[in-house]
Design a protein around this nucleic acid. Structure first.
Lengths: 150, 150
DNA sequence: TTAAGTGCAAAAACTTTGCATATTT
DNA sequence: AAATATGCAAAGTTTTTGCACTTAA
C-alpha cells in the first residue's frame, strides 16, 4: 500500500504549478493521510477535525483546499447521495475502490473490482478520453433496513 | 424498449400508497417520458421547461415531485459532478446505463455494461442488500479538452 | 518584495419548510 | 368532508467570493 503524498511531495507538486505550501494545506493533507481506511469526510467534517486537533483553518480555506487538492488528484471527490460532497485520499486507479450504499441508512461498504477498472479503461480509450477515475456506485437496501421495512 | 410509466400507471402507483395524482405530477412525468435519450434535467431545468410548455408548477412542487418520484423509483437521481442533482426516467436494471464525464467541459457519454450490472448484483447478494441501482461513473478528459490543454 | 493564501463576513446557489388556499379522493 | 398537494415567501444548507491583511518564496 502506497501513501501517495507526504508534505514534501505536496510542496513539490504545489510549487511546480506556482502554488505555495501553507500550514493549512499541510494539516489537511495530514488529516487525510491518517484517516482510517473506508472513511471519507465532508468539508464541514474536515473543518471540525482541524479544530479538534488544535490546528487552525477557516471553513473557506478548507473548501478552497479540498477543491485544489481534488484538482491536483491528491484527493478524490465523491457524491454518495448525501447532501454534501465527500473526500478521501486518492489512490491509483488500480487500487481504487467502489461503494455499495444503503439508501435508507447510508451504511456504506467498500469493495475493489479490477473488472470495473478495465471496463473504465476500455471505454475511455475507445472514446479518446484520458481516464482519471472510475467509481461504481451501487444503491440498495441493507439487511437491517430490509428487516425493518417488514 | 419499455416506457415504464404513463399517467395511468403513475396514478395507480400513487393511489396505492395514499398519494394523489395531480396535473403537476402528470406534467413532470410527461416531460421525462418525452426527454430525448441521454438527457437529464435538474430541478431548475424541469421548472423552466414546464413554463415553456405553458404548464404550471412552482419550483417547490418540482422539488417535492422529483424527490417523490425518485423514491418511487420512477425517476433515477444522479450526481455527475455538477452542483445540482440530475434526474432521468428510471430504466430497469438490465436496461440502465452509465456515464463517462469530461471533468473540464462535462461532456457526457452514456454506455451500457451488462458486466457492471452483474458485478453490482453479485456484490449486493453477497452483502445481503436488495439491489436498486448500479451506476458506473467514469471521469476523464475528453479529446477536445486534451488538445486544448496543449 | 511580491504574488499567493487566509480569514471574515457577505452573498450565491440549491433545497426545504410553514402556512393558508386549492384540489383530489 | 377529509386528507393531501400546491404556491408563496421565508428559512436552511452548502459552497463561493470580495477584500484587507498575512505569509511563502
Amino acid at each position: 500500500m502506497v501513501i501517495p503524498y507526504n508534505s514534501v511531495a505536496l510542496k513539490v507538486t504545489l510549487n511546480q504549478k506556482g502554488w505555495r505550501m501553507t500550514p493549512q494545506r499541510q494539516v489537511i493533507l495530514d488529516l487525510f493521510c491518517n484517516l482510517p481506511k473506508g472513511e471519507h469526510l465532508s468539508a464541514e467534517e474536515v473543518h471540525q477535525r482541524i479544530q479538534e486537533r488544535g490546528d487552525k483553518s477557516s471553513l473557506s480555506t478548507v473548501y478552497r483546499t479540498l477543491k485544489l487538492m481534488a484538482h491536483l488528484r491528491i484527493l478524490r471527490e465523491m457524491d454518495l447521495g448525501e447532501e454534501h460532497k465527500n473526500y478521501e485520499l486518492n489512490e491509483t486507479l488500480q487500487d481504487s475502490h467502489h461503494h455499495l450504499v444503503c439508501i435508507r441508512c447510508t451504511k456504506t461498504i467498500e469493495f475493489k473490482s479490477e473488472t470495473t477498472r478495465q471496463i473504465g479503461a476500455k471505454l475511455a480509450k475507445q472514446e479518446g478520453y484520458e481516464l482519471l477515475d472510475c467509481q461504481l456506485l451501487i444503491h440498495g437496501v441493507c439487511p437491517t433496513c430490509r428487516r425493518s421495512l417488514v
